[in-house]
């Protein structure tokens, strides 16, 4: 069984984002890069499948900058068998990334049985790549999954939709699944795992190797800027028990008369 996990390397969630002076992207020099948090659930799910099917191969694939290979090394330290890295800028659009991932998966010469990815990357927040990849491979897909069971070549997954309702799908592999928080609890890489990861194969590819050119771009970004700051609001001290009722009544009154939201 061939399992592929698509991972992205993104700025840590506590990063303060600063647009470049020409607005073409963000300043990346001092960013701490991490594996996209949703991709950790995808890696973990692949490893959970491998515990029941030990002969399964888990390959992690990433498209992005060469600054470091944190995400891929982390995935291999967690237990993935090998990795492919397609060197590219950090501001590719979803269509180009999906096409590059497809190319990288095909380069391995193995036919995918299950492709896992995070439901969204927390940098561009597009929520597109897994579904585009599925369509490019002509495979079924389910996104935002929070439950996974496998019986032979059939998977049963739960997809979370608005309001927390769950859609249950049963699908024969091959399939593309986009994972959400709540699916599992990602493991930490062990020290021996980290040591072993250094010796695991990491294929280095270029966009040209996977057949992606500038003509594959569909979405163009420009004018990166910070959102407008709100003017400072009003702050009320309600630490004194005697004043609490008056303060709250005042705020509720302002919500109606000043903010006009009630």
């Amino acid at each position: 069984m061939n399992i592929f996990v698509c991972v992205k390397q993104v700025p840590d969630t506590e990063t303060k984002i600063i647009p470049t002076s020409d607005g073409s992207f963000i300043e990346t020099a001092s960013i701490k890069w991490i594996m996209n948090p949703y991709d950790e659930y995808a890696v973990e799910q692949a490893l959970l499948i491998k515990t029941t099917i030990p002969e399964a191969n888990v390959t992690v694939v990433r498209v992005g900058s060469v600054k470091d290979t944190e995400a891929l090394r982390t995935a291999m330290a967690m237990g993935a068998d090998e990795a492919s890295h397609v060197a590219a800028g950090d501001n590719l659009d979803s269509y180009s990334i999906a096409k590059a991932l497809k190319g990288a998966i095909e380069k391995t010469g193995r036919k995918p049985d299950i492709i896992l990815a995070g439901k969204q990357a927390i940098d561009d927040d597009c929520l597109q790549v897994p579904q585009i990849l599925a369509e490019m491979f002509n495979l079924p897909s389910v996104s935002v999954i929070v439950g996974f069971e496998m019986n032979g070549t059939t998977v049963k997954v739960k997809r979370e939709v608005e309001g927390g309702a769950l859609e249950v799908y049963e699908i024969a592999t091959p399939v593309v699944l986009a994972c959400n928080k709540g699916l599992n609890t990602p493991r930490y890489a062990s020290l021996p795992g980290i040591m072993k990861a250094k010796k695991k194969p990491l294929a280095q590819l270029s966009l040209a190797d996977v057949g992606v050119t500038d003509a594959d771009r569909r979405v163009k970004y420009s004018g990166f800027k910070l959102p407008p700051e709100k003017p400072a609001g009003k702050k009320f001290d309600a630490t004194d028990a005697a004043k609490q009722k008056d303060v709250v009544a005042q705020v509720v009154g302002l919500l109606r008369t000043e903010a006009k939201v009630l």
């Binding site: 984002i17 963000i26 927040d125 597109q128 420009s222 800027k225 959102p227």
Partner: peptide, 30 residues
């Protein structure tokens, strides 16, 4: 192509130009 999660847009001359948040809204881009 798909421009996803757009929060504002214009259609000047019948051509779409949008604004969307990235990095969970820490910044905006055209």
């Amino acid at each position: 192509g798909l421009a996803s999660d757009v929060v504002n847009f214009t259609m000047d001359g019948g051509v779409f130009a949008g604004t969307r948040p990235l990095f969970a809204g820490k910044c905006l881009a055209k």
